[in-house]
Design a protein around this nucleic acid. Structure first.
Length: 387
RNA sequence: GGAGAGAUACCGAAGUGGCCAAACGGGGCAGACUGUAAAUCUGCUGGCUUACGCCUUCGAUGGUUCGAAUCCAUCUCUCUCCA
């Protein structure tokens, strides 16, 4: 067991905001396992590196002997959230939610310790589903409109004339109420969760509990280096992606972004030396985290061969085709493109080559030979086999 | 409840009867250059069709017209001011 000072140092490292350090220290001094809450969204089961930042923090708590309390927001997902901003969030069936939750745990398990004594899984329908309208009013009475409007996402939307549904004011309260019910000692979240988590403190205090500490982790920018990593923006690396894709995507980030990824994903400073070498180390370490050390080395070797030496002999992915085939169809078979029009454009612009020879005629038929290598765009390289 | 403004492709934003698959900017993709970085230059950027061409798209539904993103009606949603 590490000392309180060591724990405190470790746990607050990398956090953007800690509310408050003193309180956390006091809780740690009590010497009992703390209950560390993290809300999971059962509508987005595809976890990516962005989610991993907060999950890794939670893992740190676990490793120090504390308990991860995963809260599934099944009640809100069941009702749906018709917020103007994100269109109408579809109502999810109970089965779908369960299925998503399972997928979530499967992926979160790559980071968290999922052994029963380290994790507690709860659903907020347990208590929210039983509340009466009078209970809701009582809850709502603990908050004021002015305070709600302090929240910057609300403030911004209000200023920008973007609609805000009244029910949206209730979400922070629901989330805060969850903390009361769970007797959370600590709540983790991304920067967008600061307000919600602080509401939890108020409600806990009103309920006569000791308020939870709030640890806010920074947002991880996605591949583009500007926007927050998210599935809808397509700028993410999924936790379940293949070593090849992970490595390739990681290599495409900007040097400026690399430092932040090092800090948030590896808890390390950028090593000295050539930025490209540093990036390779980053990519390798990431692959190793999710696929093992060996896969990390392999991915690196494969990458260096493919792109640095332009030697495609070791390409792992294969595609079986029959003898002669129309080039557009051939590329389509890789399954990585959304439409034929897209493929045509790619071909016309010189993005497709066979054994290093560009094919720019989108009407061409090609006679595929065993072992030829097809390259389409930056990321797709496959070895062809004739069947 | 009253008065006004608005809804265009991934986003912002032009377009007010045919030349509109829809200007321009951003984003995205590709090529050149590189380190699959950045910067820069160039091209592309609804779907199907290996051609001719066809189909879907300007909030929704109907209508006027040879012809509608554009005109009319109804509806839905949003914003502002007033009560």
């Amino acid at each position: 067991m590490k000392s309180v000072a060591e724990q405190l140092e470790l746990l607050t490292a990398g956090c953007e905001t800690v509310v408050t350090r003193e309180e956390l220290q006091k809780k740690l001094e009590q010497g009992r396992p703390l209950r560390v809450k993290l809300g999971c969204d059962p509508t987005a089961p595809d976890l990516h590196l962005g989610h991993s930042v907060v999950l890794r923090k939670l893992r740190q708590f676990q490793d120090l002997g504390h308990k991860a309390v995963l809260l599934i927001g099944d009640y809100t997902a069941l009702i749906g959230d018709p917020t103007g901003q994100n269109k109408t969030r579809p109502m999810l069936s109970a089965e779908k939610i369960e299925q998503n939750a399972r997928t979530y745990f499967e992926q979160a398990g790559k980071i968290l310790d999922m052994s029963p004594d380290k994790v507690e899984v709860r659903r907020n329908s347990e208590w929210l589903g039983k509340m009466t309208f009078a209970d809701v009013l009582k809850l709502a009475g603990q908050m004021t409109v002015a305070r709600m409007l302090e929240r910057d996402t609300f403030e911004q939307r209000y200023e920008a004339d973007i609609p805000i549904g009244v029910h949206e004011f209730l979400y922070p309260l629901m989330q805060g109420h969850d903390s009361v019910m769970l007797q959370a000692d600590v709540e983790l979240g991304g920067t967008d969760q600061l307000f919600n988590n602080l509401v939890g403190r108020d409600l806990q205090r009103d309920a006569g509990h000791e308020p939870q500490c709030v640890l806010i982790l920074p947002i991880l920018e996605g591949l583009d280096g500007v926007e927050k990593m998210s599935k809808s923006k397509g700028n993410y690396i999924g936790l379940s992606e293949s070593p090849t894709d992970m490595f390739g995507k990681a290599m495409s980030i900007s040097d400026a972004l690399m430092a932040k990824w090092y800090r948030l994903l590896l808890n390390q400073p950028v090593p000295a030396g050539h930025p490209m070498e540093a990036k390779k180390s980053l990519a390798q370490a990431l692959v190793a985290q999710y696929h093992g050390t060996q896969a990390g080395q392999q991915a690196r070797q494969e990458f260096e061969q493919k792109f640095s030496k332009r030697d495609y002999s070791e390409v792992a992915e294969t595609l079986a085709v029959t003898g002669e085939i129309w080039i557009v169809e051939l590329v389509e078979r890789t399954g990585k493109f959304k439409s034929r029009g897209d493929i045509r454009r790619l071909i016309q612009q010189g993005g497709v080559s066979l054994d290093g020879q560009k094919i720019t005629d989108d009407k061409a038929r090609v006679a595929v030979k065993e072992g030829q290598v097809l390259k389409a765009g930056k990321l797709v390289v496959v070895k062809l086999t004739v069947s």
